[in-house]
Simulated scan of single mutants.
Amino acid sequence: MRGFRWPPPPDSGPRTWGPGPGGPRTGRPALPEPDTDLVATPHGVQLERLITGTGDPVTVFAHGLGNGIATTRPFGSGVTGRKVFFQFRGHGRSEAPDGPWTYSDLARDLRAIADLGGASRAFGASLGAGALCRLLAESPDRFEKLVFFLPAVLDQPRGPVAGDRITDLLEAVESGDASVVADVVTLELPAAVRNTPAGWAYLRQRLDQLLRDGLAGSLASLADQTPLRTTSDLAAVTAPALVIANAGDDLHPVEVAERLAAALPQATLHVYDRPGVLWSERADLRDRIAGFLNE
């Protein structure tokens, strides 16, 4: 039986025990991270940003909690025009003003980056989907197209599993111990991927970023908050929207995606029927997002 262990083999590939070859198997190395810049926002918080692509339209991409530019870029790989990626406050090189923070603060970060980049379309994953909901509740006509990937919370607080996961990640990063962080980050991977070259490459990339940049403790205050008072806050949003969910994901229940799609007047819901969509349906996911935004 294979088991997770840290530190990993030096080439990112797993070793096997028992009869048969015991050497490491080579995994594809992670791509080097591109140079980003820090931009001043009207609300006084400097945020880390990366712009790729050329021309119009412009799409802004908002990441999930504890993630960032590197994990969000694949979602835009087939999207035409310019793509604006950024780090919310408390992530990466973005500033971390004194907390506690609210979804209104995150919506302010998202709005500033979208306005500065001239974005007319928006993508939000998990935490980013919540920030996008908050922004739309305040400005329902801000974007022309919307994509919500694995929305986690609307008008009801997240459950204890999500709260514990956030706390565990923040405490692990604060410890500075790579093995402790690895134990938490590994839970993001489907069991079948955890001891594969692709899994090790992902884990190395995530640990490099988290241990280098850290995470702000004020993010913990978001665990018990909601971006909306009621889903009717989204009734005035008329932009076409694509809502994507994944069956079997305890942190991002399908029910939340269903309620979000029902609340948006022009939404299409797609539910993948098995967990780990980023690993099992990566090509279809990329084509689905690009097809919706590019059509």
Score class of each variant (00 low, 15 high):
R2E: 00
R5Y: 15
W6C: 07
P7I: 00
P10N: 10
S12D: 15
P14Y: 10
R15Y: 15
W17Q: 14
G18Q: 11
G20D: 03
T26Y: 15
G27S: 08
G27Y: 01
L31W: 15
L31F: 15
T36H: 09
T36C: 07
T36D: 08
T36P: 02
G44D: 03
E48G: 00
R49A: 15
L50F: 02
I51E: 14
G55K: 04
H63Y: 05
H63V: 05
G64R: 01
G66D: 06
N67A: 14
A70T: 11
R73E: 07
R73I: 08
G76V: 08
V79E: 04
T80A: 15
T80S: 13
T80V: 11
T80D: 14
F85H: 05
F86Y: 05
H91F: 04
G92V: 06
G92F: 08
R93E: 12
D98M: 14
G99A: 05
G99W: 10
T102H: 10
Y103W: 12
L110Q: 09
L110W: 13
G117P: 07
G117L: 02
A119K: 06
S120F: 00
A122T: 00
L127M: 12
G130T: 06
A131V: 07
L132R: 01
R134V: 00
L135R: 02
A137G: 01
S139K: 13
P140T: 10
L146N: 07
V147S: 01
F148K: 02
P151A: 04
V153E: 03
L154K: 06
D155R: 09
Q156D: 11
T167I: 08
E171R: 09
A172N: 01
V173N: 01
V173D: 00
E174A: 14
A178S: 08
V184F: 05
T186S: 12
E188Q: 15
L189V: 02
P190G: 04
A191W: 13
A192R: 14
V193R: 11
P197T: 07
P197K: 08
Y202H: 05
R204D: 12
L207C: 03
L210G: 04
G217P: 02
D224R: 14
T226F: 09
P227L: 05
R229Q: 13
S232C: 00
L234I: 09
A235N: 10
V237F: 07
G248E: 03
G248S: 07
D249S: 01
D249H: 00
V254L: 08
A257M: 00
E258S: 04
E258G: 10
L260M: 03
L260D: 04
A262H: 00
A267L: 04
T268Y: 04
V271W: 04
D273L: 09
R274W: 11
P275T: 10
P275D: 06
W279A: 13
E281A: 15
R282S: 13
D284Q: 14
G291I: 08
G291H: 03
G291S: 07
G291R: 03
L293A: 06
E295S: 14
